[in-house]
């Protein structure tokens, strides 16, 4: 995974193993370099992803190599973030959902069940319409109706 400097292209190339760094991790790391570099990705055989970081201005070899090394660090950062995010997915949904709901306007909050009541609700009641499919809420009403009749 050593960075390979391509001076002619003013770029550094890194190839990463998607078995270690899953695609979302590689993408997230690449995203962090968009302001400083032109970034292009390409899949390689054997679950590998090639990443090219090209300088927006001419860069010398040390700077290019440094970019590649920084990219490695960012991969580790994003990998941990990804793992923690997956592990705490449900917890985040509960805390953030509760906090955002509490900030809603006074009238909306009054209409929503109180936290204590919410614990007693049958999940089938779905007062906030969470179970309503996205298409039914926001999509073409005719299509939804037709599908509903089938």
């Amino acid at each position: 995974m050593d960075p390979k400097v391509d001076r002619q292209a003013n770029a550094v190339n890194v190839v990463l193993d998607e078995g270690v760094f899953p695609r979302p991790v590689g993408l997230a790391a690449a995203y962090r370099f968009l302001e400083r570099c032109y970034v292009q990705l390409e899949r390689r055989p054997g679950r590998r992803l090639a990443v090219r970081l090209k300088g927006k201005a001419p860069l010398d070899e040390d700077v290019l190599r440094g970019l590649g090394e920084e990219f490695h660090n960012e991969l580790v950062n994003q990998l941990v973030r990804h793992q923690v995010s997956e592990r705490t997915d449900q917890l985040r949904a509960v805390i953030v959902g509760r906090a955002l709901l509490s900030a809603e306007p006074a009238e909306a909050a009054a209409a929503a069940p109180a936290a204590d009541d919410a614990a007693c609700l049958d999940y089938l009641e779905d007062p906030l319409g969470i179970a309503v499919p996205w298409e039914e809420k926001h999509g073409d009403k005719r299509k939804t109706t037709r599908r509903g009749k089938k």
Partner: peptide
């Protein structure tokens, strides 16, 4: 903007997720 539009801004949601430290690397 109304209050609902202001607190419903995607930026509020982003900051809420980004500061939920039970779910952040290094903090969790």
């Amino acid at each position: 903007n109304t209050y609902a539009e202001i607190v419903g801004h995607p930026g509020v949601q982003s900051l809420c997720v980004a500061s939920c430290l039970e779910c952040l690397p290094g903090c969790a």
